[in-house]
Design a protein around this nucleic acid. Sequence first.
DNA 1: TAAACATATGAACAATTGCTCATATAAGCA
DNA 2: TGCTTATATGAGCAATTGTTCATATGTTTA
Lengths: 106, 106
Amino acid sequence: MDNSISKIQGAITRNSELFEELASLYKIFGDASRVKILCALTQSEMCVSEISAFLSISQSAVSHQLRILKTSNLVKTRRDGKNIIYSLTDEHIKTIIDCGMEHIAG
Amino acid sequence: MDNSISKIQGAITRNSELFEELASLYKIFGDASRVKILCALTQSEMCVSEISAFLSISQSAVSHQLRILKTSNLVKTRRDGKNIIYSLTDEHIKTIIDCGMEHIAG
DNA sequence: TAAACATATGAACAATTGCTCATATAAGCA
DNA sequence: TGCTTATATGAGCAATTGTTCATATGTTTA
């Protein structure tokens, strides 16, 4: 193995945890329901029943997905009466979606 | 559901296939071995045994992962004697990795 | 307070994933 | 031509995933 490749190996091996984290992030975007939810939330905050309605999947399934998104800090919530309103924690999430969309388009 | 949300619903429902495709793309990045391979290839083209060595995973496992990357057109190959040399199909892949890394760092 | 509505959660299950093992294919070399 | 090296591939398996179903929690309203 030549020297430049062993440098790459070193860099990646040393930062193995970082790549685990990166993979975990992408794994979350790797489901159509979740990425649709995230994309919708780039446009407007929404409550669970609204999300459930437009995705045509059950309230329970949406809640499970939202929990994943919340646990990984991609969305935050606030209560409004009976509803829980979900929104993105940061604008950077839109950048990630756009980045992937560009790849598909290109 | 208010009018602005039904517009979002429309946009997402109409482009459902696009989101499936987007999710499929991210799913590929959602594995630490694969994202390490892709990251390494942003620095230099490499053959299978080199990748296997630096990831410390078996040749067979690497081959399986490379097949996934090739099938989804993220990497391309050329033969050099006994070796098959893998490289990225396009520079945009680095952008996607950087984009995710920024999110983690931020 | 009781009924209705909105959301969350645990168990269970089928589908998918990423690996290993064994083996096939293909090129270089004695 | 046989032997070795490099890579690919199929079967099988354990682990993970995304859903459904049933039910729990929490809020509003009559």
